[in-house]
Design a protein around this nucleic acid. Sequence first.
DNA 1: AACCTCATATTGACAGTGGCAAGATGAAGA
DNA 2: TCTTCATCTTGCCACTGTCAATATGAGGTT
Lengths: 203, 203
Amino acid sequence: MDTEDPLCAVPEKPRYHHGALHDALLAAAEAELAETGLEAFSLRRVARRAGVSHAAPAHHFGDVGGLLTALAAEGFRQFIAAMTAHQARASRDPQAQIVAAGLGYIAFATERPALFRLIFSSDRPDFAAPGLAAGSAQAYEHLSRLVGARTGGEDPVDIAAVWAMAHGLADLMAAGRMYAIQNLAPADRDRAFCGILARTIPG
Amino acid sequence: MDTEDPLCAVPEKPRYHHGALHDALLAAAEAELAETGLEAFSLRRVARRAGVSHAAPAHHFGDVGGLLTALAAEGFRQFIAAMTAHQARASRDPQAQIVAAGLGYIAFATERPALFRLIFSSDRPDFAAPGLAAGSAQAYEHLSRLVGARTGGEDPVDIAAVWAMAHGLADLMAAGRMYAIQNLAPADRDRAFCGILARTIPG
DNA sequence: AACCTCATATTGACAGTGGCAAGATGAAGA
DNA sequence: TCTTCATCTTGCCACTGTCAATATGAGGTT
């Protein structure tokens, strides 16, 4: 959250027409989501944080659902980026890539639990909206390709197994329910995750 | 939801002191949760459904969090019951019992998605409250015993693997995100789940 | 330059929400 | 019968999301 970014340099004096409210609201919403969580998310607080009236978001996002839809689309981009980042640090071996993607999956859930819940455990975004549906599909295809590289064919059941294992670990970690794993030292925790994730594809 | 249950026979004429408001509110809350979902849950609608003023629940549950805490505790009981029911129909073989528990896990999530989210993906219940913490711990121990019967020792990593796989499948099914599996015929779907769940414990 | 247009933002209202305080009710014990 | 006190209601407050009406001013046209 760098406020000195010259690329976003916009005059700071208050003016009637904000100029970049769309992006400012998205950033405010993301911060608000991270701080208060999804269940306490408030459109009016987002507007206040962006320094704008409570009805201003409506013009850009329609209603709170629209804002959350846009936020979820952005969330999927970050989600895929988290997997990709972890894969980049792993070997090219297909199995290692699957495990790395799983670690990225878990890292995203742990570091951004509210955003994770927004994209996977909420009914409030409109998942049929073009931008969001595309993000969701892109995430699935990302996983699908990984599994395909490992098994040869993209068997939906294999994909489901890898997906479910990564998702289960991620969701339980985001909710803070896996005490046995949470209490491990980071290195041991990662080792445990790797071992578990490696079980999903037999052979 | 049998309204003729003689065991619960309570005079039905409206009176100032309800007599069994605690249980009536819990039942109303569960119905409300199932119909409107967790994110649209409203304490006042629960009160209306129970035929009582909007402030009546406060005396029994404190606030909305208290009601959701009680509901979550009840949810864990039903959750464990779902696993137990599926296990009863399976063979005594430890591996078969693990798979059956997983199928029960998934069945609970698909049949009661809102309750499932309440106990696994919500911050609103107080999970430190005695009744709820006990239910949560009981569920973990249930899984723990199953895995122990299969492997000999209760390795937390083995438990985590089984738990995460079942949870991942359940959560993604509850959210309606596993299109590839959802579109399968019920028999094929169960076969797929069994195959996937069986992968979690190696050997 | 002056003017117009219209997307952008504000204000104010509305019904709905959770929580609190004050009061009404009536069941149970003295 | 009288008293007590848990139970339930009423009324209020701050807050929420959404809508309609209004104000603003940036950019294009003349």
